[in-house]
Design a protein around this nucleic acid. Structure first.
Lengths: 223, 223
DNA sequence: GATAGTTTCATACACATGTTTGAAAAGCAA
DNA sequence: TTGCTTTTCAAACATGTGTATGAAACTATC
């Protein structure tokens, strides 16, 4: 039926616009114009703007999680039930980084939409987001299997930092480029993934060289 | 004159509200109610809402940068013109982390406002932000003095990652707490600063242990 | 091809937001 | 005080937004 075409057109257009311009700057009139459907169609098919956003988010959230877990699982099976930390972090940040920074044919509105969703904390999404925590716990569990002797807190901090680095790299490519006067190459996505993963792994495995890393004094300056 | 009192009341109230609830959720009516002034006062004293935000941001931006540079300078002088990487990263992320996560008496609306400003990219701020890049370059320069043999690109990546970790820790304390079932302690700010700094330094100095960090295969899975 | 259910459409509604207005009040110099 | 400027105030205005309405067009089943 033609109704599905309208529904799909709305979803596609909304996802693209939200990915490009963020939630705050996109109105329903923008969406229906891009989808070439009538204004009332959104409320007819989704009930409200918030429900449209929620549906987009839920769908993509499930897909992203599945993608990451699928990659993790495959790696664990290939490794006899255990993946290396490097692989685990790679499965966590790889899909999103590729989806946001990869070459045009890899890049997806879906990945960029999810980044927007995690940046701009809009009400309908905030309520759903709790699910993500359970998902991350799976990666925490994988790492604990890989590193049974490590302090669990360190593992979670490393996970947290890995996501932070990936996330920020996506959000603010421009600042990094300008800060480094173009020295930091953002075109080679796999290199970025490797770098993020390497830091996360190092944070967990390695210790800083004693002389260079030890501060002369730990007391913060008065300010 | 009493006009200054009104102006100040608006600035104070606006900063606090924006820090607490973000730009999107705070209206001019919220601000004037909190400041206990008339609605028209904002336009009278600042011209427009955007100009109010811009003034807040410019003021705080200068103050934050001065604070960080002051700390960096003091450390460089104490070290005979050169600070250690640990100290440099500490000067970069310390003030903000303390201002956002420290105990109540340390915590400042200013720091939290600045975090909001860097999260929610609202038009009046976007235009001003370029300045921050120059500021970060100073830290890049300090690190290059401290590590003259390092690849500059690595230095900028480390700076980028340090900010990312600090930033994300402030933004999303809740997820980390829940993900780790409370294992990650967010009350000890100095410990957090040390951890972020340690990872940044390690990323720059140390190399991961060969066996644990090397992936079995670098090729990403098909998805 | 008639009919009932579904979908589309133009339009209007209700509401919140930033801004403006013009008069009243306050402050201040002579 | 007088006269002028600065500041405050209540109210209105203009606009953009999500949503609702009721009629028209369409689709499918008999």
């Amino acid at each position: 039926m033609a109704a599905d075409r309208t529904r799909t057109a709305i979803l596609t257009a909304a996802e693209r616009l939200y990915a490009e311009r963020g939630f705050a700057d996109v109105t329903m009139r923008d969406i229906v114009a891009a989808a070439d459907v009538n204004l009332a169609a959104v409320n007819y098919h989704f009930g409200s703007k918030d429900e449209l956003i929620a549906e987009l988010f839920v769908t993509r959230s499930i897909a992203t999680n599945r993608e990451r877990l699928h990659e993790l699982k495959a790696l664990e099976e290939a490794g006899g039930g255990r993946a290396t930390p490097h692989e685990i972090f790679g499965a966590l940040v790889g899909p999103t980084l590729r989806g946001c920074l990869g070459e045009a044919k890899q890049r997806s509105d879906a990945a960029r939409f999810m980044i927007r969703a995690s940046i701009e904390s809009v009400p309908p999404i905030r309520k759903i987001k709790n699910r993500e925590v359970d998902h991350l716990k799976r990666f925490g569990a994988a790492l604990r299997r890989a590193l049974p002797d490590h302090d669990p807190a360190d593992i979670f901090w490393a996970l947290h930092f890995a996501l932070a680095m990936a996330h920020q790299t996506i959000r603010d490519t421009e600042r990094l480029t300008r800060m480094s006067d173009g020295l930091c190459n953002l075109d080679d996505v796999q290199a970025i993934i490797d770098r993020v993963v390497a830091v996360a792994v190092t944070a967990l495995m390695g210790k800083p060289t004693k002389d260079a890393a030890k501060p002369r004094s730990r007391k913060p300056l008065a300010v």
